[in-house]
Design a binder for these strands. Structure first.
Lengths: 208, 208
DNA sequence: CATCTGAACTAATGGTCGTAGTTTAATTCC
DNA sequence: GGAATTAAACTACGACCATTAGTTCAGATG
């Protein structure tokens, strides 16, 4: 088997009549396959070989669409940040004050639980010298800043508060994903408590 | 070069007069070398080959002392958790209330900043079916529980509070280590703000 | 139909972890 | 002191992995 030069059909389901010159793979599909693997089997299961196999293609072929393994996790992270931003926006629109914080926090955790591999990719991808990744992270952060509007914080204090909220949410979902909470105590209740504490802390800074 | 069977002296500096049967390596030294590499060049730089090279030994030799790469990061995590617990205890002893929380939080962050690779190992090591690792994590958690004593929380509420504090601290130091804070705002001040928020949140639950 | 672009291929390199089997040094026992 | 035992380090391999170089051919363009 494996005739030399044997051409495989690798993307002939739908969208074959577009303006593209060839019906094969593209970067979107490759990153999509990697994202599915990451969420199903963990980010560590995302290898060039595995993604290629899932797409019915040899490993080197992926380099035509994606910049190696780093490009793969970068692509996952980019998509994850976009989806997370959208989820946060959806949850917080039309709400204000503590209700907005609560809704955004729940959406944040829900995304991380539903897409553990994608969320992990946002940690692993290095934003140094990657403006696109930085911008995506910035957009996500700005949703959190907007959620804090009612506390009327200004300048650095707003940044401090946003960092605090993000740290708390990030820490919780990471510990939860890594099975870091040993005791058999309801995690939903712990998360609600965390959010209540954050809101209490924000209120405390207001009437200080 | 590299005569077959050439014996290397690999641990003849100091402590050669102990009761050990052989002056070669032992698990402590191997994990110690791995820990140094992790803190200096990142946890990803910890490979069996690299640790062996640093010890002046061939890679397979390490398997006499440590259970492969997983054993290496497990060993690092174990030592990190012990050191972290000690640092937290040292910082919080003799203090109470918000002063104790502040001191413990500062010690937590200081450890993570001083030992980024070791701290990362505590995330990567999987505690499933590893009672020793679970116990070490539990001991660290108990210091945090003790720090919260003055808030007189009971039962699940104490667990919720401890998880919240740990999540916040963990999230902050992870984001800080991954260069996750984009904007040029003083990180020390942000951390102090986070701790103030946590204390405010704890107080809010007391007079609720 | 001829040309050309580029997507996928084969082949090869160098890195990783881990195992099997061997050699030999150090210790212990007689 | 010499023999037996223990175990630490070795060489040699195998199975992956990512990545690069060079080749082939399918499909679109003129």
């Amino acid at each position: 088997m494996a005739e030399p030069g044997g051409r495989r059909r690798a993307g002939d389901d739908g969208r074959a009549g577009g303006g593209r010159r060839r019906p094969g793979l593209d970067g979107e599909q490759v990153v999509g396959a990697a994202l599915r693997i990451a969420d199903a089997d963990g980010l560590a299961a995302v290898t060039v070989a595995r993604v290629a196999a899932d797409l019915g293609v040899r490993a080197p072929s992926l380099y035509n669409h994606v910049d190696g393994l780093d490009g793969l996790v970068r692509g996952i992270a980019l998509r994850a940040l976009g989806d997370l931003e959208a989820a946060l926006s959806r949850a917080s629109v039309g709400r204000s004050g503590s209700a907005a914080v609560r809704a955004a926090a729940d959406a944040y955790r829900a995304y991380a639980l539903a897409h553990p591999g994608a969320y992990a990719a946002t940690q692993q991808a290095r934003p140094d010298a990657d403006p696109e990744l930085q911008a995506a992270a910035q957009r996500t952060t700005e949703v959190l800043l907007a959620v804090l509007r009612d506390w009327r914080l200004e300048g650095d204090e707003l940044i401090h508060a946003a960092r605090a909220v993000r740290s708390a949410l990030h820490g919780f979902v990471v510990l939860e994903a890594d099975a870091g909470f040993g005791l058999p105590v309801d995690r939903d209740a712990s998360f609600a408590w965390l959010v209540t504490m954050l809101i209490g802390g924000l209120d405390a800074t207001r009437d200080r």
